[in-house]
Simulated scan of single mutants.
Amino acid sequence: MTYSIPEHPLPTWLADLVSPLDDKLGVKVREISPTRCVVTAPLDGNTQPMGLWHGGGSGVLVETAGSLAAMAHARTFDHSAVGTELSVSHLRPPRGHQVIATATAVHLGKHTTTHTVEIVDDEGRICAVGRMTCQVIGQ
């Protein structure tokens, strides 16, 4: 289980945080910092019975991108982060081979973080938008 891909080296602390669900979905981390996290997942194998991207996959990507960015923030003062709120609005089904979720910090506090997340397809169309709030906790 790994989030890494050869062309995007990741921080060593991330190796122990791979979620089994993310691993099943094929989630890969392209970029990670407190202010921005970019993750991808393949469309193939992550569809609902109609053959479209499963909306639950969007929820996973919003949670993963937002939580990893929150974790990167919390680690700057030896803390951790856990999710407390998740919302996703589905706008259109993605096309192509993968979806890309980009979390952008809205609030990076001592006790909470909030990130907005845009999910786009291979054509660059916004397919879903979400928000992830995390609580910063001591280790």
Rank of each mutant, 00 (worst) to 15 (best):
M71I: 15
S58Q: 04
V88T: 15
A15M: 03
T116D: 15
T35K: 10
A15P: 00
K24D: 14
E31S: 11
T76C: 03
T76M: 10
D23C: 05
D122Q: 09
N46R: 12
V18L: 07
I32T: 07
T64Q: 03
E118F: 00
N46P: 12
V117T: 11
P20A: 13
E118N: 14
S33C: 07
L25G: 05
A41T: 03
P49V: 03
S33L: 06
V27R: 04
V120P: 00
W53Q: 12
T116G: 01
S19K: 03
H97Q: 15
G56A: 08
S80N: 12
V117R: 06
S89D: 14
K110W: 04
V99M: 10
S58Y: 08
A101H: 08
V60H: 01
I100S: 13
H97Y: 01
T112F: 09
H90I: 07
W13D: 11
K28Y: 03
K24V: 13
Q98G: 05
H107V: 00
G109R: 09
R75W: 03
L61V: 02
L17S: 10
G51E: 09
K28V: 08
T35G: 03
T113I: 03
H73L: 06
E85L: 01
Q98S: 15
G55N: 11
R30L: 15
M50R: 03
G51Q: 05
L52N: 06
I32P: 06
L43H: 02
V38W: 04
L17G: 00
V106G: 01
I32Y: 03
A41I: 02
G124T: 05
L43P: 06
P20D: 14
P93C: 03
L68C: 04
H79E: 11
Q98R: 15
A101F: 02
R92N: 07
L68V: 10
A81K: 07
G96F: 01
A15R: 13
G56P: 03
M50D: 08
T76R: 13
A15S: 14
P49A: 09
H115A: 11
G55D: 12
A101Q: 09
L17A: 11
P49F: 04
A41P: 05
N46V: 05
S58K: 02
P11H: 06
V82R: 08
K110D: 12
T116V: 08
